[in-house]
Amino acid sequence: MENHQIAALFSANYAEARDKFLRAAARRGLAVESHELALAGAQGEVLATDVVLDGPADASKMLVVISGVHGVEGFCGSAIQTGMLDLGAPAQAQARPQGAHDTAVLYVHAVNPYGFSHLRRATQENIDLNRNFVDFSKPLPVNAGYAEIHELLLPPEWPPQPRTEGLLDAYRERHGARGLQRATSLGQHVHADGLHYGGTEPAWSNRTFREILKRYAPKVRELASIDIHTGLGPYGVGERIFASFDEAVLERATRWWGELTSVTTGTSTSIPLTGPIQTALAEECPQALHVGICLEYGTWPMARVSAAMRAEHWLHRHGCADAAKATAIRQEMKDAFFPDAEDWKLAAWQQGLQACQQALRGLEEDAAAKLAA
């Protein structure tokens, strides 16, 4: 694929991204199942989580490629999904022996279409989906650290006053940079207008994703997943974060994808989350062996990304009569999670393509090894 073709995979807004994804599926003659959200997009467009199955409906091996869990981060994942559809994997694998004919790719496009369209990480319920996949019948996780800094993160005025930032700096001094990240990002279920809110019930996107898995993966025995995110780490680098609950599959995941980081051991730029989407893969597909990663692309330094996210949440919480200021905040939010630069797009595509191909090869080779045993 030429550089100009790669650049064309990326879109300027959700509506364009969805159109490209749907057109790619149509070119392949693949059916699309659309789960529409009963809200309008930023341009008045239809909002939906769209699903495409590429491969046999009864495949026992499946790669699930997920985009847009954190809305505005969907620009990257959508481009990778569209490009993969154009390439036709796993159709290309049909020429290979053992197991390829029994492998499918399930593309779940824009898990959080509202956030994608409105340039938010959160859903229409202001929920961070990766903190929402918890058991709501049990006591919810408590994040005392967040309660201490909630008003400092989202003060009445923006930009924050020096005193406000000074108090946040003091918290960082006491608990370290990782401690501040944990307090801010772990997830919380008390402040409904706050950052990384996990909610008090399953969000629409949570319920929809579970329905998709129930429909498409009940017969799958070997399940690979790639959940695509942006905003953490060095510019253009796709960190591969181990994302399976079963540590016994770590050796297999490493064999497929190479060196992986881990939130549990502290080697990742991310931290352990209270309710990640991978919970649904484990709960809705208990019959399958799940091997998954989060593919987290770095954009800009953490200070810029964090400031953009705080500003956008401040706008959501307090509103702003200054239209120009509000527009600038939304644009910076988009820029922070989606660098509109050719080198970044090329790097994102190349690494995303490689990760998907490695997962498919791993599924097929493991199947071949079983047949030979």
Score class of each variant (00 low, 15 high):
8 A>N: 12
11 S>I: 08
11 S>L: 09
16 E>A: 14
27 R>K: 09
27 R>V: 03
32 V>T: 07
47 L>M: 05
49 T>S: 11
51 V>H: 03
55 G>S: 06
60 S>Y: 03
63 L>Q: 05
66 I>M: 13
69 V>T: 15
70 H>N: 08
71 G>C: 05
71 G>L: 02
85 L>A: 00
89 A>Q: 08
91 A>L: 11
94 Q>P: 00
97 P>K: 02
101 H>F: 02
101 H>P: 03
107 Y>I: 01
118 H>E: 12
133 F>P: 02
136 F>Q: 08
136 F>I: 10
148 E>G: 03
152 L>R: 01
154 L>R: 03
180 L>C: 03
188 Q>E: 13
195 L>F: 08
201 E>P: 00
208 T>W: 08
211 E>R: 14
218 P>G: 02
222 E>L: 09
232 L>Q: 09
233 G>I: 05
233 G>Y: 08
238 G>Q: 01
246 D>E: 13
246 D>V: 05
247 E>V: 07
254 T>C: 09
255 R>E: 15
259 E>F: 10
263 V>P: 00
273 L>R: 03
278 Q>S: 12
298 G>E: 08
299 T>H: 05
302 M>S: 14
309 M>D: 10
315 L>V: 03
317 R>I: 02
319 G>Y: 10
320 C>Q: 04
320 C>N: 07
332 E>T: 07
336 A>H: 01
357 Q>L: 15
363 L>T: 02
366 D>E: 15
371 L>D: 06
373 A>Y: 10
373 A>T: 13
